[in-house]
Simulated scan of single mutants.
Amino acid sequence: MTTDYPPTRARGRGAAWYRGDCHVHSVHSDGELTPDELALRARAAGLDFIATTEHNRAAAPGVWAGPAADDLLVVLGEEVTTETGHWLALGLAPGRVVDWNHRAGDGQIGRRLEEVRAAGGLCVAAHPHAPYPSGDLEFPVEGFDLVEVWNGQWASDLPWNADNEATLAEWGRGLAAGLRAGSWRPAIGSSDTHLEGQLGIPHTVVRAEELSTAAVLAGLRAGRSWVAGSAAVGLSFTAAADGRVAEVGGLLVTRGGRVEVRVEVEGVPSGTVSVHTDRGQVLRVPLPGDGAVRWRTTARDSAFVRIEVRRPDGRMAALTNPIVLT
């Protein structure tokens, strides 16, 4: 990689949970902030990585090399903006542009997605129910690797709206079918930053073996991630059976035993924690003042478990990908 582009690996950053915003625009498409300004705000927002996703164009040479450093990974990407929906191509090579001249029904989307995957990238269904022309995704969501269930562009102060609610419900209903088919599409959340004050609201927290493009994409692809409304929100989510423990995105082999689900939340002073399985919402309790929320099940009763944390007015504060039980 030339010095005109950011490095693909931050040195000295090993296995950890990393916070990142996978959908960011600068002045090089239709955003109001420069790459330097975005990097400054990313650090202030507690982010470890951001993805530059300009509309139908590659990251410009030279503009992201300086803002990136060992404390901030910059992932190269593109928001592929078509007449029948938008999608994110993450992990592109320097200067690479994905052709956006395709639409639902013309038979081209599969080829475009495979081109990104063949180069090691990820394809994300962006804001599937966005309330503007071309924003509503008409391509089959099953073709994508990830689904952006929480998009923060249209509100501020921990946004959550009906469009996100519809996407979450649709994604949640598809989890059981995906598991039966041997695969499922993890969820992410992104700010879709265009304006001041949006970056990192929300963002995705991913377990990666190091702070590198390849490791972050691998964590996202596997669903080892959860979505936070801001860096102030912390969450721990595990499932345990007979001494074995799985974290979000993991597979827990229960051997028919009882499963104890444990959830701890920080940075959300009041609201509710809800537990969701293939049977829908199975538990909803107030956030405890201290300690953890615990719930028990079996693999026979629950094919998976995922968590939502909401504020008193119903707005989302955090949500997770599932732990699969077998």
Rank of each mutant, 00 (worst) to 15 (best):
P186E: 06
T193M: 13
G178F: 08
W160V: 02
T167G: 05
E196L: 13
W154Y: 13
R180P: 00
A155T: 08
G189N: 07
L195D: 09
S183T: 15
L199G: 06
E148R: 02
P186G: 05
A169S: 14
A176S: 15
L168R: 13
N164L: 10
L195T: 03
V149H: 00
E170M: 12
P159I: 11
D192Q: 07
V205E: 06
A176P: 03
W160M: 09
G189P: 02
A155Q: 14
L158M: 07
H203N: 11
Q198C: 01
S190T: 15
A169Q: 14
G182M: 10
P202R: 08
V149G: 01
W171V: 04
H203T: 05
A176V: 08
I188Y: 02
D157R: 10
E165C: 05
G197R: 07
A187K: 04
G189K: 03
P159W: 06
H203K: 04
P159N: 10
V205Q: 01
G152H: 05
S183H: 14
L175T: 03
D192V: 06
R185E: 03
I201C: 07
H203I: 04
N151V: 09
R173Y: 12
E165V: 07
L168S: 05
R207F: 12
G178H: 09
Q153I: 05
A162F: 09
H194R: 12
G152A: 11
R180E: 15
L158H: 03
G189H: 07
G200P: 01
P202Y: 06
A177V: 13
S183R: 15
G189I: 04
L179M: 12
W160P: 00
W160Q: 05
V205R: 00
A181F: 02
T167K: 03
R173G: 13
P159C: 11
A208E: 09
D163K: 05
G200V: 08
N161P: 00
G189C: 06
V149D: 00
G189Q: 04
S183Q: 13
T204G: 00
L179T: 06
A181P: 00
S183N: 12
E148H: 02
N151M: 06
R207I: 01
I188L: 15
R185N: 02
R173D: 15
W154L: 15
D157P: 00
G172L: 08
V205L: 01
Q198V: 03
N151H: 11
T204Y: 00
P159G: 09
I188H: 03
R207M: 06
W150T: 10
V149T: 15
S191L: 12
S156E: 13
